[in-house]
Computed example of a mutant assay.
Amino acid sequence: MLKPLLLMVALGSAVIFTGCESMPSSPHVTENLQQLQNRTWIATQIGTTTIQTTPSANHIPSIQFDEATKRVSGSDGCNRIMGSYTAGTDTLQLSQLATTRMACMNNNNIDRHYNEALAKVTHYQVFGKTLKLLDRHGNLLIQFESAVQPR
């Protein structure tokens, strides 16, 4: 009698744990990813330095996350950047980042600071029109504003 009961408990546990593995992602994950992806983010702050730009400025650090291709692209304020990314609920891994190598004059090394910050990104937070890229300790690396409000 004890063996069949033990067998049923074991089988029931296996079914429950297998079911948990195949559950779809939570709505929170989907919502965060939808807010992160498929829009242009304009950098407003790198570390503690505020980036002052005018609406007509040409060389503004920016980033875009393409949901379909899982590719990241943008600008460091001088050069184009491109690579791939993996994102979770609040985690973000940028990989295979590459940049063009144009000479950048009179930009207060924003391009260098931007690329150094991108190399340290492990997490993100999205609140409406604001994106924050964070390091593994939760420190702000880069803050962005959405160029266009999503539909």
Rank of each mutant, 00 (worst) to 15 (best):
L2F: 13
L36D: 10
N38G: 10
D66R: 00
L94M: 03
Q45C: 07
N79A: 13
T40P: 00
I60T: 15
T130W: 11
V9P: 06
Q37T: 15
R39M: 12
T69L: 05
C104V: 03
L141I: 04
L118W: 04
I51K: 00
L140R: 02
S56N: 11
F65I: 06
D90V: 09
P150C: 13
P150S: 12
P24R: 06
E67I: 05
P27E: 09
E21D: 01
M105C: 00
T99M: 14
T69F: 08
T122L: 09
A68T: 15
S13K: 00
V9Y: 02
Y85C: 07
E21F: 04
Y124C: 12
R80E: 09
I42T: 13
V121S: 01
N79M: 12
A98F: 06
M102Q: 04
F65T: 07
Q149P: 01
K129G: 14
K3M: 04
L131K: 06
T48L: 13
T49S: 06
L141S: 04
D66I: 01
Q64C: 00
G88A: 13
Q64M: 05
S84A: 12
V72M: 02
S25M: 06
L141M: 05
G47K: 03
M82D: 09
T30H: 07
E116M: 09
I142H: 10
V121Y: 01
M23Q: 15
M82K: 05
S56W: 03
G77F: 11
L133Y: 04
D135S: 11
R101D: 03
I110S: 01
I60V: 15
L97E: 06
I63A: 07
N58D: 11
A147G: 14
L118Y: 05
I110Q: 01
I60A: 06
Q143H: 01
N38Q: 06
R112W: 09
V15T: 11
A87V: 13
M8A: 15
T54V: 08
T86D: 11
T50G: 02
I16D: 00
Q143D: 02
F65R: 00
R112P: 03
F17L: 11
A117F: 07
H113S: 14
M1N: 12
E31S: 14
T54S: 10
G128T: 10
G74V: 09
